[in-house]
Each structure stands twice: as structure tokens, then as C-alpha cells.
Simulated assay, not measured.
Amino acid sequence: MSDLIAIQINGSPSIAENLEKLDSLLGHARPKPNSPALAVLPECAIQFACCGATILENAENMGQGPIQARLANMAQKHNVYLVGGTMPIKSNDSAHYYAASLVFSPAGKLISAYNKIHLFDVEVQDKTQSYLESKFTQRGEHIATFDSPWGKVGQAICYDLRFATMFDAMMPMNIVVIPSAFTKATGQAHWHALLKARSIELQCYIVAANQVGTHQDGRETFGHSCIYSPWGELLSVIENEEGWASARVDSARQLSIRKRMPMQSHKRERYKFE
């Protein structure tokens, strides 16, 4: 049975519809969940393709609320460490929410929370053209990690992927999870290149779960949810449909890669120009 799972959906504005779809896909990916796995949902897995004001209305307090209760239940039901994509969590500013990636243990306990640091305020050559995530989203301040049976796991979200120094700060992680809603245009150009680079730089497994297809608001996302090895190998990918990618963790091979090329001990904290 696989250790790592990246779930891919075409998210809608309906919270109930998305949760049912995610629960069903996890059930198919985990038919006999005797041992735990690490499962990652996409960014905006709970609600997508609607305005930020609507998402803000559904923001919950950290640690309580029906959405968090359902995610906790899914983690227990499918015996997974569940990285719940992202969902809106209330901030100290009533006009903004945190895009929070919450992690639940197989016991249904909330064990980690990461608020997205880098917000997608960009121009893209697609149908949407202009993205202004900061209009309703409060920027996070801290990176987050959690313990798992496969070692330390680092958390990032979508646009974070472009900022190498954030990942450098995570070293050494055994796994990095990246819930995403990468656009079709930027995904075609950079998705696999960035994921492969991060896996090589950190010598870790990368589990990247993305949204896919054309959504109700016309937005197009790239799909290609996938898992990369610590040597930069593409272990599994689901391209243009809903479903999942999955792979096994080979801890001995990861350790061997790090011993043969000890990048962590070679890294310098500061680099200077002459």
C-alpha cells in the first residue's frame, strides 16, 4: 500500500460537494487502510471558483467548526495524516482570512497549521488574467513542520513553490507537501521544473496536490498532481482528470542519497560577494 497520496479534484463553490468528492477519492485510494499514509488535498479543496467574500463568510476559528470536524473525521476514517489542502481560518482582521493548511493525524487530532506566506498577486496570460489573493487573504508569517512515521514533513502552498529560500529554511525535511491551485498557464511553464528542483535541493520527497480543469468561474488549473523522489525522479502523476497520485517512501534510499551527497553539511549560512 502507498505511503504518499496526492488527491486531485476539479473544485467547485459547493463545500458539501467538494467534501464528498474528497472523501470518496480517499476511500478509493485507501481501500484497506491497515497502516497509515500521508494524504494531501489541493489548495482551496474545500471551496473554489467563487469570490473571496464568499469564502470569507465560511471562515472558521482555528480548532473548531464543521469543516475542520469533517476533515478530522476523514483522517480517522481513512487512517491518514491528512493535509487538508487549504481552508479559510479567521484572522484578527475581520476583512481577511488565513489560507490555512491544517494537518490531522489518523486519530483525528489537529497536529499542525500553516498559513500561506506568499500571496498570488500577479498577472497571468489566461482567461482570468489578474489575480489578487491579498484582497481577502491575510499573509502568514511562519513556516510549519510536523512529525510523521516517515520523518519530518514541511508545509508549503502553491505560490510558495517559487521561493527557494523558504524551502532552504526547511532543510532537512524528509517530505514536503504542497497543496496547490496552479493555473494552467503557469503550470505548463513551471510546475514540474519547480517541483523537481525542490526535491533535488532538499533531497526529499515532494507531494504536490493540484486543482485540475476548467472551473465554474472560468478559471483553469493545471492538474498534474504528483510525487517526486529525493533524487528528482517523477514517481507518480495524474495529469488531467480527477483522482490521485501515489508512491511508497524508501527511507533507506533517501538516507543513502544524503550520505553520498551530503548537501546539508556543505551548505553555508551566508554567501558573500568579493
Rank of each mutant, 00 (worst) to 15 (best):
S2M: 01
I7M: 00
Q8R: 10
I9K: 00
S14Q: 11
S14E: 09
N18L: 07
N18W: 08
L19S: 01
S24Y: 11
L25T: 04
G27F: 02
H28V: 12
H28W: 13
K32F: 05
K32S: 11
P36D: 03
A39H: 00
L41T: 01
P42W: 06
C44F: 15
C44S: 10
I46T: 07
Q47I: 12
F48P: 04
C50F: 04
L56F: 05
L56G: 00
N58Y: 07
A59T: 11
A59G: 10
N61G: 08
M62I: 09
G63A: 06
Q64P: 06
I67W: 02
Q68A: 05
R70S: 02
L71R: 03
N73A: 13
K77I: 07
N79E: 08
N79A: 10
Y81T: 01
Y81P: 05
V83F: 01
G84R: 00
G85P: 03
N92I: 03
D93P: 07
A95S: 13
A95D: 15
H96Q: 15
Y97M: 09
Y98S: 05
L102F: 02
L102V: 13
F104W: 07
S105A: 09
A107G: 11
K109V: 10
K109W: 05
S112G: 10
A113I: 14
L119H: 08
F120N: 13
D126C: 14
T128F: 10
Q129G: 07
S130Y: 13
S130I: 15
S134G: 10
K135H: 10
K135S: 09
T137N: 07
R139E: 13
G140M: 05
H142C: 05
T145A: 04
D147F: 09
G151T: 12
K152C: 06
K152G: 03
Q155V: 12
Y159L: 07
D160R: 08
L161Y: 08
L161Q: 06
R162D: 05
T165P: 09
M166F: 12
F167S: 03
D168S: 09
D168Y: 06
M173G: 06
V176S: 03
P179A: 01
A181W: 09
T183G: 08
A185L: 09
A189K: 14
A189N: 11
H190I: 11
H192L: 13
L194Y: 06
L194F: 08
L194T: 03
L195M: 14
A197G: 13
A197T: 15
S199H: 03
I200V: 06
E201H: 12
V207G: 07
A209Y: 00
A209E: 02
N210R: 00
N210W: 04
Q211N: 15
V212H: 02
V212T: 06
G213H: 11
Q216L: 12
R219F: 09
G223N: 05
S225E: 01
C226R: 03
I227D: 06
I227R: 06
I227Q: 00
Y228C: 03
S229I: 03
G232R: 00
G232D: 14
L235H: 06
I238V: 12
E241T: 12
E242M: 05
G243K: 02
A245T: 02
A245V: 05
A247W: 01
R248Y: 08
V249I: 08
D250K: 00
A252W: 02
R253L: 10
L255N: 03
I257V: 14
R258Q: 14
P262T: 14
P262Y: 13
R268A: 09
Y271L: 11
Y271T: 14
K272M: 11
F273Y: 14
F273C: 10
F273G: 11
E274W: 07
